[in-house]
Design a binder for these strands. Sequence first.
DNA 1: CCCGCACATATTGTCGACAACTTCGATCCA
DNA 2: TGGATCGAAGTTGTCGACAATATGTGCGGG
Lengths: 221, 221
Amino acid sequence: MLFSIDQAVTAADKTFFQLRKDIVEGVIPADSKLSEIELSTKYAVGRSVIRESINRLETCHLVERKANVGARVVALTPEGLVELYEVRESLEGMAARLAAENMTDQEINDLNSLLSSHFQEVKDGDSYYQEAGDLDFHYRVILGSKNKHLISTLIDGIYHLVRMYRVQLGMTGPRVTTAFDEHKHVVQAISNRDQELAEMLMRRHISYSRLNIEKKLVAKK
Amino acid sequence: MLFSIDQAVTAADKTFFQLRKDIVEGVIPADSKLSEIELSTKYAVGRSVIRESINRLETCHLVERKANVGARVVALTPEGLVELYEVRESLEGMAARLAAENMTDQEINDLNSLLSSHFQEVKDGDSYYQEAGDLDFHYRVILGSKNKHLISTLIDGIYHLVRMYRVQLGMTGPRVTTAFDEHKHVVQAISNRDQELAEMLMRRHISYSRLNIEKKLVAKK
DNA sequence: CCCGCACATATTGTCGACAACTTCGATCCA
DNA sequence: TGGATCGAAGTTGTCGACAATATGTGCGGG
């Protein structure tokens, strides 16, 4: 599948990326129904394009579909979060381990630069908002694993749902600085080619992150 | 997504299941091109149905698609196998651990019965061919994890590709008996609710299995 | 008053036609 | 002869019409 929006060539590609963005950022609310006709007028494309987009959103676990009934955006629930992060911990931990093994020195340097620029933002008081894609720490580590199946499972399968939870519930508060430090330590381990440590630190980081979001999710209820 | 063929209600569902079966079993050869028109006449449905089916096959990693060019069945390669099994080991290991935690006593009993009936087949000299779905050991353990994301990632994401390698390259020879014993030990650990052992035994079983298929794949070249 | 049935309405599922694009081969020019 | 360009054929992408299915409403019977 495609990874970033500049690779979009067909109308279905573009609509899919736009819809995904709107869902992740809450422009289209969680748990709301998706009407094909409504979307097709709003996004100015035919229904086939909308249908194909919805199909792809389903593989991202961002919408659920029932035959002859329709599709709706997933709901953000504590149970869903726990199950998602359980899988995420295992897979991203593995990604960190493989990244420590397989990333090139150049890529590790770039990752360090990226973190430095993030550091500026954190210091300047800007929120530590992670863009989707290339500018996101987790994204880089995942790609760094160099395992096509792992990359696809993570990016096409759960990455955007994770972002949905993060964006809609978890990107504020004092956790920002803490998270940044945790990222730094993971990169350190990757730089040292310490596979086991990289995996362990990543798992721990994700576990902390889950606790933080869980709190917000329960509080909101 | 749907898990078994009896849940298929639309033409797209049925066509998808049929196509998936034909690809996994090699009726449609690995690495061959999929023509929408050809398939739509052969399976007696419109092109939209074929297109939707191909989209779903893409999420199973059974076909790859390029915009304005078309789709083709994946090729079975040693590199692909290694990357696939790397992910599989991690995820199915996790599934075994969660299964040891979350399966009901009833489900564990059923799993034991299933293995007994498999034992008959092995003893009678029938090949230890694993049906897709409910009759497959791995399938049961995955469902036993009770983690929706893990289940979907495995079943919708890599399970059928694993089967494709197994069916087309690895289901013969003396490994059959060995594999059966390994299955038995995993179930034993699950019965004892020994999470760590279940994970470890499953990982080891998958690792052995990979070596076996790898041999065949290299030999075939 | 409640339950079930039938009809009307709205939504999704499927189809074939047309548009856009890629590919391959022939032709032309240097 | 080699290479580029143009054109034809075939494939995929997109669209709107029609069919099939679910949902909501009102009526009638119990």
